[in-house]
Amino acid sequence: MRIPCPHCGMRGSEEFSYRGAAGPPPPAADAPAASWHDHVYLRDNPFGPHRELWHHRYGCRRWLVVTRDTRTHDIAGAVDASAWQPPA
């Protein structure tokens, strides 16, 4: 599996570390416990396209949002996380 880093080009996945789904930002500090539970513990875990955070740990050390199909590992694209907005 190779990841098209927007800064470094196409690189092997072994240069990256995986964080998990790229989602909305955490709830406010004083949000109800149920909101925090959902944010920390529950996952959509989609069968198909998945937007996820990868860190280019042995490269440019930027966080990326990668769109990858969990059925096939096909990668549709990657953008720098700072340029990505979670869907409303």
Binding site: Y18, R68, T72
Partner: peptide, 8 residues
Amino acid sequence: IDGYNSYA
């Protein structure tokens, strides 16, 4: 495990 979400 490989370490990323997968159903493959």
